[in-house]
Design a binder for these strands. Structure first.
Lengths: 216, 216, 216, 216
DNA sequence: GATGAATGAGGCTTCATTCAT
DNA sequence: TATGAATGAAGCCTCATTCAT
């Protein structure tokens, strides 16, 4: 269950196949090529021509599907997040315990290392520049954070979580911790078991690292 | 106590005055200008001419002090880390408790938001591309992580910290959590009290967020 | 009585209906669309796709009727002149006096402002570049000039016009004067009465602007 | 006394020689090259690279002196008009009779055929597209026309010219007539004596072509 | 050392034209 | 006939870097 740019499994159009629409096969090929090339070289070191070549289309063809090089990147990032939120939303229907929900989020987030190119993209290009972040990336992170806060708040209301720590702080810590683990793994090439790692992170988050207290 | 690119207080050459040496005043001016310009527009949208203009020197002058535009960025980032480690090293002489040391690291890290340009640089350009990270940034992060691991390990040996969680995982979680808080604050423009926030993060890290357990 | 690109009234094939022939309805639609789009944006800023869109046909369809984008423009201009000459030729059958004929030419020429797009086309694109003019426009202008010269010469022979001024010079002056009036009106958006303005121009041409002489 | 793009004789900076300023020799070389290349091929068929090549500079150098390709053209046209008006203004100090002034304007205008490239530029590119004309060219023509109107009005007040014809109409006729003569000569390659031709045009304008009236 | 004019490679994007359907 | 997706050449412009002064 890896994050990919295709939103097919996220309720997308499926195989409609026709035209210059997002559903088209060439559209997806360009997107995939862009993710790979940009992950490899960085956005600014990835000429449109390189993306086109990897996608097996002419340079100009890119512009039949995207308004600009920039839009390709944005679209790819959007798709990853869309997929992520779709998975979370779906799973939350069945998994209602706050702790279990945090574990799921952590797990899915960590699983994104399975598609290395996408993971790299998210760890690098999404944080490209202050302006990009301010105008675009942040929007996505804000949503992530707010989802986690919601869960934390619920946990606090239910008396499962301490109420003397800010839900926002917890959310940022969770996101940051997981993201850093993912990032580190991606750039060192290390592999890990997403589920087990997620469990550990959540355990630390829930019980801390102080010795002499009860742990699960 | 903010992180700056100047390594003056980090044991730099002091007032050597002239020449092309790193200690030169013009050298530092270029570095500072680069940080500001790049923080504002991103590395690839920052012409050397813009850096030169802000530094008040001719374009060509940059190349008397740095081999390439790239080197300016690398040097700036290096300086920030050097400063950081110098501060940590110095403080650790007097502050020996593992918990207190973690708190100090968290605090200094969080304090870097005080110099917004430097903070932005570290949150964006340092993560420019997979290659840059692989070849450069990672080296710095590895050191950061290893310092924290060292502290955690010591705490585990002293029986202060649980030994059933990996020191590496803890280190990454700590770095990630703090980094994300910093990042979020920088890009939303939010301000915070570094010391208090550091204390909260460490508290969560040490005791977790589960209710019903003893907290400090 | 406006100049249009359609050569229908100029003795065209009439209602032949189908096929790729110039008489086809789609052929005319493309021509009209081209005139409008080019008048609006200029030849080089008018993509074939824009012309096709305005004509309500596919881009490729244009090439079933014309060999190239260039040919569309040339055809449109040709049509305007064909129409013009057809009208002049027809009218000259009934209007034989030199002065009256000059007045008619001036009037029809000035009337072309009624179809703004066509007028703009003639005032701009026809004078696109030295090469275009040398190879194409000039041919039309030469004919215009020669028609006027003919009339002037006849007037001179009849003793109506002075014989000490070159017929060519007079012809160029007449064309230039009228063309400039038209041009100015088109680009300022000013309207005028073609017939009255024509009369004034001819009056100036015939009697000059010196005071104290007899005028009609 | 030919119209050129250099405003040197129009009170320009002369040979100051330095920097990227308009006075620079390279600046002028680029402008001259642009005029020649554009006159030859038309603005849209003149790659910046061709202009640079003819000027003997690198492509990028153009952009040290001009903001855009467009600006090169505008500057060239502006210079021609500036030169023209400077000459007219200067001469009007000594030549005060309305008729003599009209003759001078006609003569200078007609003389511009001596520099064929400049003449072509003015006959083609200045009338490039409706938008260009509306926003730029027209401004220049308006000034030309207003200068002539002024002279005509003065002549009417002095009782030298008829008052029953609009000064504007006369101005447009004069400009149009001369411009067409110039244009025709340029594109056919015909040569003429500017002074003599100017005299003839003015004669026709003043006395008309009707036979049996008194001519100068 | 310092300058900044000059270079020219290379990037993004447009668009006339073709051709398989 | 008609379509419109695809092509790829070509254009404008930017900018890191050099070098004569």
């Amino acid at each position: 269950m890896t994050l990919r740019t295709t939103s097919a499994s996220a309720g997308g159009r499926g195989s409609d196949g026709g035209g210059k629409a997002p559903g088209s096969e060439k559209y997806q090929r360009i997107l995939d090529a862009a993710v790979e090339v940009i992950a490899e070289n960085g956005y600014f070191n990835s000429p449109v021509s390189a993306i086109a070549a990897k996608a097996g289309v002419a340079d100009g063809t890119i512009y039949l599907y995207f308004k600009s090089k920039d839009e390709v990147l944005r679209t790819a990032i959007d798709a990853v997040f869309a997929k992520f939120y779709a998975m979370v939303e779906e799973e939350f229907k069945h998994r209602t315990g706050p702790r279990e929900q945090l574990e799921f989020i952590a797990q899915v987030h960590l699983e994104s290392h399975e598609n290395r190119s996408v993971a790299i993209l998210m760890q690098t290009e999404m944080r490209q520049s202050a302006k990009f972040i301010a105008e675009f990336s942040h929007r996505h992170l804000v949503k992530y954070i707010s989802v986690v806060r919601e869960v934390v708040r619920r946990g606090q209301k239910q008396g499962i979580f301490r109420s003397d720590v800010s839900d926002g702080l917890v959310a940022h810590c969770l996101f940051g911790a997981i993201d850093e683990l993912l990032s580190s793994a991606v750039f060192t090439g290390r592999a890990y078991d997403a589920k087990a790692t997620a469990a550990q992170v959540i355990d630390v988050l829930l019980h801390g690292i102080t010795a002499g207290e009860a742990h699960v």
